[in-house]
């Protein structure tokens, strides 16, 4: 949070000093096509979804080819559920039920290669309420209020929705851990692009409790996406919890959300 404010101040200085920006042409190398797997099991009723897709070149359109014909299972609670491909690249469970405290393992076989991941669903933490604070220029920032359970490491993911739709461009995504906040009553300001949080919309904030590996992945992801900046370290692909060389991640997490109309 303090970094965010420092960052804003930093930019303020620049724009006072005739900063300018323009779109440039850069010629980027084309890397080999990468396989991307994302999957989630949560404590809401299923089915749960796993997607498999491919990377594309920078200059291509944002159409990421789905990968069909994968054989995918998720095991946990003593059962193994084989997922069904209901639309190209999207695979769904049949009977698996996510329970906090349980470990889940994902196996994906595609084109003769195997990819595995495991994730343990943390105990749930309830999001108590949403409040708001006004920033510069009357920007509205939501605050997520919740009690962090003492004595254990907790990792949180926040996802924001305006009128039921996720914010564009990866905005409205953030993560938080209780490394410096263990056991506190936490009032977490979500400093996201305020263009999306404005009067007249219905804002939903979803708070997921995630495990450590998923937190690390999402934390690194947030560092390289959106407003990654000049002062950040050299960007690198986030460390995935999926073995076998795929991009993406697999998360077993709990979900708690609050919805508020903004006037």
């Amino acid at each position: 949070m303090k970094n965010k404010i420092a960052y804003n101040l930093f930019f303020l200085i620049f724009f006072l000093l005739t900063g300018c920006k323009k779109v440039i042409d850069v010629s980027l190398k084309n890397a080999d096509v990468q396989l991307v797997i994302t999957g989630e099991v949560n404590n809401l009723p299923g089915p749960y979804k796993v997607t498999v897709s491919k990377s594309v070149n920078f200059t291509s359109d944002n159409n990421f080819p789905p990968v069909s014909g994968a054989f995918i299972t998720i095991s946990g609670n003593g059962i193994t559920d084989t997922l069904e491909e209901k639309e190209p690249g999207s695979y769904f469970t049949h009977r698996l039920e996510g329970k906090p405290g349980e470990g889940y393992s994902l196996k994906v076989s595609v084109n003769g290669k195997n990819y595995n991941a495991t994730s343990v669903m943390p105990e749930p933490v309830e999001l108590d309420s949403l409040t708001f604070t006004l920033g510069r220029d009357n920007d509205i920032y939501p605050i997520a209020n919740f009690k962090d359970p003492p004595g254990i490491n907790n990792y949180y993911q926040f996802i924001e929705f305006a009128n039921g739709i996720k914010f564009n461009n990866g905005r409205g995504n953030s993560v938080f851990d209780d490394r410096l906040s263990d056991g506190r009553y936490i009032k977490r300001t979500l400093y996201d692009d305020s263009d999306d949080v404005k009067p007249g919309i219905t804002l939903k904030v979803q708070m997921n409790c995630i495990d450590k590996a998923v937190f690390n992945y999402l934390n690194e992801l947030s560092q390289i996406s959106g407003n990654g900046s000049f002062s950040s370290p050299a960007p690198a692909n986030p460390d995935s919890n999926i073995s076998g060389g795929a991009l993406g991640y697999f998360s077993a997490n709990t979900v708690s959300s609050k919805t508020v109309e903004i006037h």
Binding site: I24, V26, L28, K29, N30, A31, V33, Q34, V36, T38, S53, K54, S55, V56, N57, F58, S60, N62, F64, K166, N169, G170, N173, L221, I224, S225, A234, P235, A236, N237, L247, G248, Y249
Partner: peptide, 28 residues
Amino acid sequence: AVTWPSGKYEVNGSTVFYYAERNGYRMP
């Protein structure tokens, strides 16, 4: 020397850039 993307992919509905090597590019 800078690290720029060599591709892109999608995670949770957003575009994520793929990095093939550290400092593989040059700023103008």
